[in-house]
Design a binder for these strands. Structure first.
Lengths: 123, 123
DNA sequence: CAGCATCCAGGACGATACTG
DNA sequence: CAGTATCGTCCTGGATGCTG
């Protein structure tokens, strides 16, 4: 009794697809951690101050489902799981770098530290 | 009795600042509309199928507060308001274009239309 | 025409406790 | 160690009605 083709949230524009994959409270931070190398679960949790296990797991699973992250499970006791960026995940690097630089430029030109928000509209 | 410097959501990384400014159900769509030229409120609402007045207003105000959008009010009756991108808003163009192209590439290589989700891990 | 006010549902996120 | 399960809260966004 369920609609088979139900797709309530359908991305129209490719840019929105991209946006959806990096949107999330911790995703950019997780991406950055993994970009610096392979990491274990606890390692990530220690680096990402304040993140809960639930959110770390959830975001990692989403990124894995999106094909950005590779999850390698070692059949050992105690368990050992390693996370790393896939090629697709790594391919986000130029984009995120550009976001980073735009953010810096924006902060510098629009919000100089210590200055009140004054927009000087010359002319 | 309230902490004066309370800042519950503080962006750490410049990339997150950028992300915050383009995150929102309709922001990329609004940006795209305005990128093609100056638009009036109703014009935007007609183009953005499904958006409510509330969300259009809200997103426009946020983008205005962020310095991405310029709002020009004509003191007429009936009211006339024109929205356009500021220079800062326009400067997002390369970034959004790159998001667009990454999204296309991602869709082509990871989700060929009509194909089931099969990850063929050669080797 | 271009809003604003109000109410509401769903999802994102956090806190906490438990487990193979 | 690396999770899962449950609960509660806040926030986003949608629906609707009213206004200068």
């Amino acid at each position: 009794m369920q609609a088979p083709q139900e797709q309530p949230k359908k991305e129209h524009c490719p840019a929105e697809t991209t946006l959806a994959m990096i949107s999330g409270r911790w995703k950019l931070l997780i991406w950055r951690e993994l970009f610096s190398g392979v990491k274990r679960f606890n390692e990530l949790q220690r680096s990402l101050t304040g993140i809960t296990q639930k959110m770390l797991t959830q975001h990692l699973r989403e990124m894995e489902a999106d094909g950005l992250v590779y999850r390698k499970v070692y059949a050992e006791i105690p368990p050992k799981v390693e996370y790393s960026l896939t090629e697709t995940g790594k391919s986000l690097q130029p984009l995120i770098e550009q976001m980073h630089e735009w953010g810096i430029e924006f902060t510098v030109t629009s919000h100089p530290p210590g200055s009140p928000v004054i927009t000087v509209d010359s002319k």
